[in-house]
Write a protein that binds this DNA or RNA. Structure first.
Lengths: 224, 224
DNA sequence: TATGTGCTTTGACCTAAGTCAAAAGGGTAA
DNA sequence: TTACCCTTTTGACTTAGGTCAAAGCACATA
């Protein structure tokens, strides 16, 4: 049992005693691909950690257009916001693959938290980081155009994998939504990047050919 | 002394004992209008609460364009992120008016926090809310066009003031930045709204004449 | 009163990117 | 193989909103 929580970066730095306390209040839940985990406006009864699988967090605009806020994978935690506010879930969550989650019921967690200050501190840190990411996203959406956003995204993946060649791990429609655009536009931007020999792309395999120029694109000092 | 911290909504629900402990570790700092409080990449040595004045949080894009992330006023707390991550400030902060702030040094606060679990819980709640706001902002920026954003903003002000007639409390250039656009565009959008008799505006005084239609605009079911 | 400085508005123009529609692939099941 | 479905790409068109430049205001200081 112990192993499961250690795989979460947020929890991994917790003293062992807290790890087992967390374990004690959690439950394992499994969701097949395509299954909804919760919907916008459902009451926030607890939060989740992903052991295995992929979870899409998204909203539907009044016009019925889907906007993906985030895609979470193994080791990530989501929906913890509701635990602290006592408010409803602000978005929908859906399993993109067969997924195994750890569920932390709000009430039990709240009790645990109030008894263990170090746990609180670690969680505050986690939330700070998420905040930063969102601030970055706001900045990106309001300052940059699509090619810049794509370049930023690719360089981020490069950073994460440490390689110039890697796999986009969502399909292109989903990637478009993540970048705040639509598949057609993404397709055209990718084409331009190929024409300019900045990248090579086959299916979901990408190779960065000109990291230099991609970097300039990302900060808006350059156009395609 | 006591009164100062009670004016912060986040702290107001704290037991009195915590309020005074918070007081004990805090300092009052004063900034004249135009004075920088911290800059992007400065180390995060502590966070601030606003007693009086107005603080602008902003970033400068690589092209030198300013983007306002937020404008905080009395009763609000900012820059708490750095306290928990130990990272640098992610944006700039500047006093728009002569301002009085409470400063909470990171180290002392960290100690305090680890000794007082309820304080941790309240702060987790605060951060959850901020997260929500940012998620909303991301949604807004990626799903809506400028007239919808302006309508949303106006309706929010209406909500906050409880009146159909109120004061924009930033100038129009800053309002434009807050809405992720530029003064020219904002000016044209305002003009259209006036032409359609949705609002009346003189200087920074706004009156909402047709809340119904503004509501439709805000959710994108309507165009100007 | 004159001069300067910083907002705000207006006009003319341009372009990134969205819409709509259709074609091209790619994978699976019968 | 054929049929079907879903994703991706391409093309033609439209438009929101940004850029640049100039003019209009408003307020403060000399």
């Amino acid at each position: 049992m112990q192993k499961k929580l250690e795989m979460f970066p947020i929890f991994s730095s917790l003293p062992r005693e807290y790890l087992s306390k967390m374990e004690n209040i959690s439950q394992i839940r499994r969701y097949p691909a395509g299954k909804s985990i919760f919907m916008e406006n459902d009451p926030g009864i607890g939060f989740y950690g992903i052991i295995d699988g992929k979870i899409k967090i998204f909203k539907i605009s009044p016009l019925g257009k889907e906007h993906i806020l985030h895609i979470f994978g193994p080791g990530e935690v989501f929906a913890e916001v509701a635990v602290f506010t006592g408010l409803d879930f602000p978005a929908n969550a859906l399993a993109l693959e067969d997924s195994a989650l750890v569920f932390f019921p709000r009430d039990r967690f709240r009790t645990l938290l109030s008894e263990n200050p170090d746990l609180s501190l670690s969680l505050l840190g986690l939330m700070s980081v998420r905040l930063r990411q969102l601030v970055a996203k706001v900045e990106e959406l309001s300052l940059k155009e699509v090619p810049a956003r794509l370049a930023t995204h690719l360089l981020l993946l490069r950073e994460n994998t440490g390689r110039d060649e890697f796999d986009l791990d969502v399909n292109k429609s989903q990637l478009a939504a993540m970048l705040g655009t639509i598949p057609e536009t993404l397709s055209r931007v990718i084409r331009k990047m190929k024409d300019e020999d900045l990248i090579r792309i086959e299916g979901s395999k990408v190779e960065l050919l000109d990291v230099q120029s991609l970097g300039q694109l990302a900060v808006g000092e350059f156009r395609l």
